[in-house]
Design a protein around this nucleic acid. Structure first.
Lengths: 335, 335
DNA sequence: CTGAAAGCGCTTACAG
DNA sequence: CTGAAAGCGCTTACAG
């Protein structure tokens, strides 16, 4: 017992303290069944006494397996991605894997971030959002590590993929308006249309075309319009088509804004006007009379990504390289 | 050139390919100025040619420094925490650190998660949310790694802390109602009162007491009431105090609900009635006439945590172990 | 500016 | 069931 700061005990220290060899200690942690119960107890007691915490960095180097999975997300402000990480992390932790997270807002920094991630020798990588630079893709391919892309329509791409078709989801909810008998339905989207937004818009348009209705009642709000975008869309589309009966929105925020505008105009929803959302954000349940919307399951996507990766890492093979995670339509009263 | 799968090139491979020693290669990456420009170019070209990515696991073990910071959050569903991670990650990446993330929903699993985290030899740890088990705290202390606790009132605790006083924030906004001359102000909170909610309520009550006003006009809504909670609070408190002039809410959702109820009753805001929120959620800007509320800055908290940690890791010392991240009051028209 | 050698703390066949 | 030894891919004094 000295007063000096002691360095953290190593496995060797523990072996000495317990009076066994290094490899017996190692086995106590990795292959407990291979060591006699009494010996194991002796070692574990000593471990608790000295406060031993295995150095997983050394373990990773020696074993060639880091038990880490890296995730690269463009942003955590997007609650879908946060939820995906939650589901991914939950599953990974349950399987004894750790999550190495990188947030690469700037696509230009993606490659350098990826290099750092890959250098940590993760057993697999989760990518979120669809677009990646040629360099990034080359880097990943060269690393020879299993990859799963999330939030993209599940089709074979880089390696594995999990998600659902945004096109289908938007078409499905738009068809609900058609089935209700509406003949004049508009689309409220955003100006800076990402691929993800565009797929939804096309789904909407497909539903209209399939029903023989016009599919050009589109309004694109400024990206940062928030709820106000819903009002703008309603204004603009009613001016374009005075008989407008319903609005399909790229997002619950726009839909809620449209609902507010209906209140302001004294239009009763859904009797006089129908609104469909997308996302099932908290507001969808809150805004009167309740927004009918598409609910996506980020946690399930994250979990599925984790399952695919762990299977591939541990068995080297995968049942199916693409997996569909169902979305659902939540019926409330706006439609 | 063979057709078999080649293993990833190591630094030794690269040294051979470039015709230099191992240590020259290492220096090219770590201490570029220590190697002649020509040699460096030769090495870098070879690195690009063979697709060399440094093994950071080996690097960490050899150097005793992992350039990783671990973060433990209770949940990513809380957008405050997600934003904090975003701010933390941004800063860390800019300093060449990686983020090791664990989501420990279940406090019982905290210790095992922490063990895994610590075993990866992070240079520092970020904790989110205030309560931790004795075992967890012992583990952290024993690891001798810098720690910063976030989203707690900044006072010396485990090691370092960054956040702001929820009490102060609630008191500040409540004082605004007092300064406006209101004499009858109520509080709308939630039943299942967390410590965080309780601190805000106490801040409100303090403001009332300081002004010599009654501080018992409290209503606690069911946890899942959503906007409806604001209506319930208004109903109940007006019944209790017919001269009620304003409402302070634990959350923007409640405040928005109260505002909706004012519309329904035909009360003009802020002339006849005032409402204060908390959180500056998106709805605060959108709900007419605009909600005056407290804005918290999760990204700034995350960034500050990163700054403190990196300073402590790299210099061994810190200017101040506690840091206050300002909240701000966003003035709109509800008060 | 460049290099040979020891070592970081584990794991992994291989013996006994 | 237990152990001695080599090795994982780097970094770090220390020489030259």
């Amino acid at each position: 017992m000295t007063a000096v700061t002691r360095r953290k005990p190593t496995m060797t220290d523990l072996a000495n303290a317990a009076g066994v060899s290094l490899m017996t200690v190692s086995n106590c942690f990795k292959q407990p069944h291979k060591v006699h119960a009494d010996t194991r107890k002796k070692v574990m007691d000593a471990a608790a006494a000295v406060g031993y915490v295995p150095n997983l960095i050394a373990s990773s180097l020696a074993s060639g397996s880091s038990r880490m999975v890296a995730a690269l997300v463009p942003s955590l402000r997007n609650s879908n991605f946060a939820t995906t990480l939650q589901g991914l992390g939950d599953y990974l932790h349950s399987r004894g894997y750790e999550l190495l997270l990188a947030v690469a807002e700037d696509p230009a920094r993606e490659e350098i971030v990826l290099r750092n991630l890959l250098g940590r020798q993760p057993g697999g990588i989760v990518l979120t959002g669809g677009e990646h630079s040629k360099e990034s893709i080359a880097l990943i391919r060269h690393a020879g590590v299993p990859v799963v892309e999330t939030w993209i329509a599940p089709k074979p791409g880089l390696d594995m993929a999990v998600g659902f078709s945004l096109f289908d989801a938007a078409r499905d909810i738009a068809q609900l308006l058609v089935k209700k008998g509406l003949r004049h339905v508009g689309w409220a989207g955003f100006e800076a249309t990402s691929d993800r937004h565009l797929q939804r818009q096309r789904g909407f348009q497909q539903a209209m075309k399939d029903a023989g209705l016009r599919s050009d009642l589109l309004f694109l709000a400024p990206e940062n319009a928030g709820f106000a975008g819903g009002r703008l869309a309603l204004d603009a589309l009613v001016r374009k088509e005075p008989k407008l009966q319903g609005l399909c929105c790229v997002t619950d925020v726009l839909a809620a804004g449209a609902l507010f505008e209906c209140m302001r105009r004294g239009w009763s929803v859904p009797e006089q006007f129908s609104v469909a959302g997308y996302g099932d954000f908290e507001i969808a349940a809150e805004v009167p009379p309740g927004l009918t919307t598409v609910k996506t399951n980020g946690a399930a996507i994250g979990r599925a990504a984790g399952e695919m990766l762990v299977q591939k890492i541990e068995t080297g093979r995968i049942d199916s390289p693409v997996r569909q995670v169902p979305y659902e339509i939540v019926f409330r009263h706006s439609l």
